[in-house]
Amino acid sequence: MFAYIVRRLLYAIPILVGVNLLTFALFFVVNTPDDMARMQLGAKRVTPEAIEKWKAERGYDLPLVWNSNEKFFLDKATKTIFVQKSAKLFLFDFGYSEDKRDIAGEITTRMWPSLALQVPVFFIGLAVCITFALLMAVFRASYLDVWGVVLCVAMMAISMLFYIIGGQYLFSKVLHLVPISGYQGGGDAFKFLILPVAIGVIAGIGGASRLYRTLFLEEMAKDFVRTARAKGLSERVVLFRHVLRNALIPILTGVVVAIPFLFLGSLLQESFFGIPGLGSYTIEAIQAQDFAVLRAMVFIGAVLYILALIATDISYTVADPRVRLQ
């Protein structure tokens, strides 16, 4: 398994190089640093000197990929925007944001509120959806099942924004149960996080429960379940040891696909609830058009995605002993 993980990590390198080339093309080739300078400086009548100064301050005054002004070959290749701005992402050297703060430092401090929000959403959401889906599948064609599916379909059609705005209004403004927004570390975090976590879980119920229900029903119709029942195993054992265990593999596969969406969800939640995490950082960067931060977030997002893919493969071996990673 160790060799497998190492190989997968090596395989990640060309993907990260691809991500890097793509962001480089997007941020520096499609629009030149001059365009960005003009955009940041705002006004239509920007002097060329102001643009040059803006570029020099941020290190954008270098050539894109080949610096023919330098003497030595090494300098010619490295004193370029590509190496200084794009390739350095690999060393987790993200440079500075528009307000001159160290992006890597910001990310390490903002990581924790994001994790405090997303980890509970992920695990509670998974548990709730599996329970709900299992209930619908066990009592299939009953009122619980029929109305459960109707509820899922309806919930799938509701925008995430509605859950957030509605939840904030109901629980914070009308019922005064939790603060509307804000964040504090440590034990106080609980009261700030409970509503965003609940909303994150609820927003995911519709689609996931419906999918899991189908997966459970598929497993329940298989021969080994009938055999298990015929052997006289209790319904509990059949359900948890046979049906749930076998349906876990497709569920785990789907959960990874949801990780980018978790990211999207947290963008909204963090900005609405004022949680100083990576999501709100990204939104602030988008709104301030801070391309340095966006580049860093794209890179980190890609790294996280690849790590999540590897984690899924490892989780397969836990869920299904027949799976061997080689």
Partner: peptide, 26 residues
């Protein structure tokens, strides 16, 4: 497609839309 997939969709869209905005403005 693995490369494209590994970038969170919203970030890729945000980056591209900002680039279009720069283009429109210039």
């Amino acid at each position: 497609y693995t490369t494209l997939n590994s970038i969170p969709g919203v970030l890729l869209i945000a980056a591209s839309v900002l680039m279009v905005q720069v283009y429109v403005d210039t």
